[in-house]
Design a protein around this nucleic acid. Sequence first.
DNA 1: ATGAAAGCGCTAACAG
DNA 2: CTGTTAGCGCTTTCAT
Lengths: 355, 355
Amino acid sequence: MAVSKRVRITDVAARAGVGVGTVSRVLNGSPQVREGTRARVLEAIEQIRYRPSRLAADLSRGSPASVAIVVPFLTRPSVVARLAGVIEVLDADGYDTIVCNVETPAQRDRQIRMLAAGHRAAGVVVISLRLSAAQFAELADAGVHLVLVDVQHRGVPHIVVDDVHGGMLATSHLIGLGHGRIAFIGDTGDAGLGFSSTSDRLRGYRRALAMAGAPVDPALVCRGPSGAGVAADTALRLLRLPEPPTAIFAASDAQAIEVLSAAEAAGRPVPGELSVIGFDDIEMAALVGLSTVRQPLRESGAHGAARLCTLLHGGSVRPLRETLPLEVVARRSTSAPPRAVAIAAVSGVRKRAPP
Amino acid sequence: MAVSKRVRITDVAARAGVGVGTVSRVLNGSPQVREGTRARVLEAIEQIRYRPSRLAADLSRGSPASVAIVVPFLTRPSVVARLAGVIEVLDADGYDTIVCNVETPAQRDRQIRMLAAGHRAAGVVVISLRLSAAQFAELADAGVHLVLVDVQHRGVPHIVVDDVHGGMLATSHLIGLGHGRIAFIGDTGDAGLGFSSTSDRLRGYRRALAMAGAPVDPALVCRGPSGAGVAADTALRLLRLPEPPTAIFAASDAQAIEVLSAAEAAGRPVPGELSVIGFDDIEMAALVGLSTVRQPLRESGAHGAARLCTLLHGGSVRPLRETLPLEVVARRSTSAPPRAVAIAAVSGVRKRAPP
DNA sequence: ATGAAAGCGCTAACAG
DNA sequence: CTGTTAGCGCTTTCAT
């Protein structure tokens, strides 16, 4: 038996003895259909097992009922969390979510170009990716609505957090615990995609230290590539310093967890001898008891999607910028520094390692 | 200035002085177009900035150039890895990927029904989700191609690993290291979605123990709900036993990492006093030095997608089942057991804790 | 090689 | 309230 031909709306109309217009109305829940007629149509639909073609409906309406979401490095926990938030609200609103993964500038450009070509997605939410003015223009005159998450651009709705403030929060938490030698470990910003959160968090770190009247030891500020294992190596190096840090602020939970692992491998109990704080609060952070600066990951995606829906429904969103709150979540990886060191740090003694 | 009206293929035809048919041909790379004509068309396209409508093309062709991928618990690292693999090859082949997240049986059913309704996706890849016979039928006569990843069903192409064998691999690794008291920690299978890998891995654990002539201590086999923190609690409880295990095989890396964390919190050095092995080899495993049974996550998705593409292109895939290889990756979390215990275990001495 | 015309299946404007 | 009709923008025979 061959694949049965697709049942069309005209078939339903015929079966129910009405016009296609009426069928279309009941399909779209129009209130102006007599109850009896509606019932007849519904019955016909049921009988001949009719399933409307999303494709045809979209073309007819002139706009697809799907939105694209462009994300960098899909597998990163923080990115997935945002993605999940986006999908959840879009799905609830009846939109299909097309996900576009991007790992290089070239890929990003290709995706944006395709989306701007039009009639693929009614809107797009871009996560953590910086676009060029040309790309914004391209998207705009292609008529696709846009919302940014974790990046900003004037004139475009965006959801962000204050990374500088977050950096201060993390550092202050450590300072408040009594730490004097606090290191920073972060990546350098990825492959042409120009992420800036690490720099901002570092800025917050410096600012918090400055406000506390503590000097920033350049030797304790480490930024390296974003590959796997580099944060751990950096931590190990730091731990071998003549006067090692008593606490480390890692720019992301992923890196913080590497630090945790490195500390264990080096036999430095956490938080006994070393306190560690991360940033993001990915699921794994709770599982390993990592203290961190929590940012509403899933929510950022959900809010972004919600705003896009508003736009898609013809509404407008103001103000353009929405800033989500940050908070430090103290778990098992941070505590007061070892007593001796704490005193030494406070009294300013032992500027250099003893001979 | 209003949004400029969409440039259609007829506009290009007019501008180039040819028929729409010809334009369509150059658009689709048909060889039967004179070089000169093609150039003229291309130029016209460029000049009036024409962008073909994917929507219209799809409707005309009768099938959407997108495929849906249905995943359970999107945020789980192992799932994302597979997803990334799927997206990568689908994207390379020109398909849009619609991702559908599912966390309850009801959601799963709804998604499948929508996809079967048709004209949304030309094919679907289902990950780790068990479908009913009715659903398979529904999908089949809706004409959507289907490929399964990490689940199987007769008559449908699927990519799997041998979880029982994997369980044996993990357990044997521990046995080979000299461990006698090996515990198993796993979840009970999730909320009606009926995952079975944990049960299979447990079966492998029992089998390996049996083959080694070692008894299975029921007190060391722990299965609980899949919430966060339960694996850690279980590990803590195990560690407090009068005769605690010297090694733990966790059914997944996520749970293994919880165990690692619990061990550290309990002051039991790993692998000094406790060896831990997981399953999956998610990215985080390498970062924390977790020994594990590696399964090709990303590849499973990639292969599944590749097979779907073959199907979509009119090809056929045989055999239906593709089994991916498993291998244990020994890292820092496993080693020989503490000497005393190893001897005690082997000699059968010390059945109970000393008074 | 290329133009003309007939759909793809549905929505929406327009009469009744 | 409901039937009719004209597209939505492209692919694809079928002639030429």
